[in-house]
Design a protein around this nucleic acid. Sequence first.
RNA 1: GGCGGGGUAGCCAAGUGGUAAGGCCGAGGUCUGCAAAACCUCUAUUCGCGGGUUCGAUUCCCGCCCCCGCCUCCA
Length: 470
Amino acid sequence: MALRFFNTYSRELEEFAPRDSSSRKIDMYTCGPTVYSRAHIGNFRAYIFEDLLQRHLEARGYEVHRVMNLTDVDDKTIRGARTARMPLSQFTEQFKDAFFKDCEALRIKPANEYPSATDQRYIDKMIAMISALIDKGLAYQAEDKSVYYRIKSFPNYGKLAHFNLDELQSTGRVKNDEYDKEHIGDFALWKAWDEEDGDVKWNSPWGPGRPGWHIECSAMATDLLGNEIDIHCGGVDNIFPHHEAEIAQSEGVTGKKFVRYWVHCEHLLVDGQKMAKSLGNFYTLSDVLAKGYTGRETRYALLRVNYRKPLNFTWDGMDEARESLGRIDGWLRRLRETAGDKIDNNKIDMQLGQEFENALDDNLNISGALGFLFETIRDTNRAMDRGELDAAQASAWLNWWKRVNQTLDLEPKTESEIPAEVSKLTDERAQARLAKDFRKSDELRDRIAALGWEVRDSKDGQKLTRRAGG
RNA sequence: GGCGGGGUAGCCAAGUGGUAAGGCCGAGGUCUGCAAAACCUCUAUUCGCGGGUUCGAUUCCCGCCCCCGCCUCCA
């Protein structure tokens, strides 16, 4: 099956073909966090989806060049820095650091670049783009000194969101203090400095001020990836106005088709409602880790539903993730035991189980792909139960897993070291069992369990497993 | 009001014009001193509701209901 994705622009499933058909290189731009506080796991659902998308494209032989921006200047960052009595850059730095730590814990592959909006290189680019837009009559400076995009002059404005400009309704969420605009839909490209901004300002042909939110992405994307890019991702809430504005800005300047495939991730919900800082119903990764779950478990929980479906976050869902991973872990352990010295760690099997990738080809059908994984697990477990899977076959399935895991990245990183205390109790238990003292054996099993380890008795003696986590 | 997403078992969730993958939970069984893990069996005559097309629809068409989101801060 051909690789295909749902393109927000056309509202259709489209077969994927890179811009440059002669090479395997793809340019991908992904909207990153605004670093005014910790990102919440709803934000990370989008980043994990993008990670899966990148990894699957790579599995299909594409070389992905991905950029993720960091919005480090806007109303919220400025307000936060003021409240914290810190320079803006120092204030945002802590949240950039936290963001990268969280990404690592969630095993999100790093982007090739993480440009910051406040980088002078991009401020210059933004100013150049705004100047070009003014020259073309697509932007104007209003009496409040700010520069706005003249959406009525860009015929395609509204095409991505499928909005009719005349029917835009104010939801009252944003305070309407920009009275100087020609059209209520005109958005700020350059915000004139005011007292609230303190020392946050850059010089421009229109006076001191700072960039509007949308222009940074147009500037960074075109600067780092070129005027035309293959894939642009984000959450569905970015469709309008953010991505609509990006198209207007980028295409307004370059005259080129900015993005070939717009791919948007649905929301993570809590109690059936969007997880959002403004609603206060959000969890950060730290919150989840504090409950005893791991980054790997969180990754699985956020990964397991197709990106186009709203996903309701629950602690039951986290438990399910834990149990499902436990099934995978147990299977891997067993395959390794069966494979013994036939294990070939350097090999990646490219033949077995193509159904996994085939499912992902279909608009990242992760449920179908995981379904196939679990069917494979049951089939091979059954074969091992019956002694019908030899070491070479077990090794082959491990090499298959290696391929699958390049996309999923769900393998426990390392088998935990067995603590001396656990080891000592296990030895005692072996003695007790030798003496058929089952009462003592069971008591020791409980004590080992209390230390977080599970002990199972097999033909080859006791087997220890770290309970949960990884 | 406009534009989208969703409604499949107790929960999560695939999927197809021909009669419902997979995961979690639960019950029974094999194995075990007992467990655990694994395996086996069972768990939706039914896919929001009502029409229509069809030999046949959960899947296509029409109409409706409910939940969620976007409509200029948002992943």
